[in-house]
Each structure stands twice: as structure tokens, then as C-alpha cells.
Design a protein around this nucleic acid. Structure first.
Lengths: 101, 101
DNA sequence: CGAGATAGTAACCGAACGGTGACAGATTGT
DNA sequence: ACAATCTGTCACCGTTCGGTTACTATCTCG
């Protein structure tokens, strides 16, 4: 499932928790947090800390994957991008020297 | 890329940011946060709030997907699970009535 | 009906977050 | 050498998070 907002995440967590037959206390305990925290997260609290979120997801055996949408989009010019020596160097250094007009 | 820790996430964000040729200020501004925050997140800060993380990922055109690892694992018994009327009802109610011995 | 379990909410409080501004180090280009 | 850029760090501060505890409402089952 694609996650776009904290609400999405909360809904998914709740979905998974209930499907596993766990109550809020069980999950909170397993994730090393509090029930209050879980309630708020399941309601879509955007202020929840990523570390606790990750622990909760792990407790629910949920995997998270991130992926770059557009491959690179150098300067948003439709130009075809043939791999050249400079792009290779840039990839290695991961820091474009200039704006590469 | 699979995300397991805040450090994984920070590394991926930095990777994507540099590959897009953005500096910290540019991304922070686009995501509506501060450069200090970005620095800490890229270093793997577990206390970062999920809402800001999501904004940053959106700014970098990064998609997040979550997925339940094991389909259901009713009681962790290797028993094969043929879909029966009860499981369907449970799925709808999303709340197992009992421990379903 | 009544006991028990689950979930949502409230108040309180210490700890940590995030923003701002400034500074130092490193790197790049002139 | 110099200026410009980018990054990491620091101190300060208002806001908010997360834990604890208690109370209430809802639902299930005996």
C-alpha cells in the first residue's frame, strides 16, 4: 500500500493489528511504547516519531520500501540522457559540480 | 530500497537529494522545514516526526510502500489456511471475536 | 443484568523536537 | 589567494511529543 499521509499509515497499522488479533496494549508493549501513543498514531498523528513508527511496523511484521519516482530528471528537460563520463563521476561523488546547463 | 532504521531512511534521502542536485537549503525550503532538521534526519535521527518526513519524501518524489510480510499467521501454527466463512467475517469486522483456539 | 475487555479521552509533566541565527571547516571556481 | 557555496555544529527557546494514570463508553459473553 502506498503511504502518502500519516493517516494512511495509521489506517494500515490498525488494519494489520486487528487482523493479527492484537489489541492496542499488546502492540504497544511489543513495540516498546504506550497505548496512548498507539491510539494517536492510528488516528494519523503527524507528529509521531519515525523511530517508534519503525518499531511498531516491525512488531507487526510490516515492510517499508522507498523508491525514487522519476529516475533522475536532471533539469526537467525532455532531453534523452545518454550515460556519459561526467554523469558517472557525478553519481560517484553524488554531488553535481554545477548546474550542468 | 527496504527501510529498517532511521539511518536507512536518512541515507536514502541524502542519496536522492544529492542526485537531484539539491542542497540542504533547497530541500528544507521545499519541504517546509529547516536545514537543521534536514541535517539531523540525514544523519538518521529517530526522533524526527513522520509528518515532516513524508513532506520531505514528497519533495524528493520518493514513494513509500508498506506491505504485510506474512499473510496472516493466525496463531503461528503451520496449519494451512483455507478461507472459511469465519475468516471472511473476521476480515470484515477486523476484530477477532476470540482467540479462536 | 453484570463482569470483563477494548478503545477513546483527559490532565499532568519531563524530555525532546524543530526553528532561528551564528560560527567553523571543507570544497569549488575565479 | 580569495570569495562563494555547502555542510555540520552550537546555544537558545517555544512548542510538542510520549508516558502515566484515571475515567468513560462500547461491546461481548456468561
Amino acid at each position: 500500500m502506498r503511504i502518502r499521509t500519516a493517516t494512511d499509515l495509521g489506517a494500515f497499522i490498525r488494519e494489520r493489528r486487528t487482523r493479527l488479533g492484537m489489541d492496542q496494549i499488546a502492540l504497544a508493549k511489543k513495540a516498546g511504547t504506550s497505548r496512548k501513543w498507539l491510539v494517536e498514531v492510528e488516528q494519523g498523528k503527524p507528529g509521531a516519531e519515525i523511530g517508534l513508527i519503525l518499531r511498531a511496523l516491525k512488531s507487526l511484521e510490516i515492510s517499508i520500501d522507498v523508491e525514487a519516482d522519476s529516475p533522475v530528471e536532471t533539469t526537467s528537460q525532455g532531453k534523452a540522457k545518454a550515460p556519459d563520463i561526467n554523469s558517472v563521476l557525478d553519481s560517484l561523488k553524488k554531488r553535481p559540480l554545477k548546474k550542468q546547463i
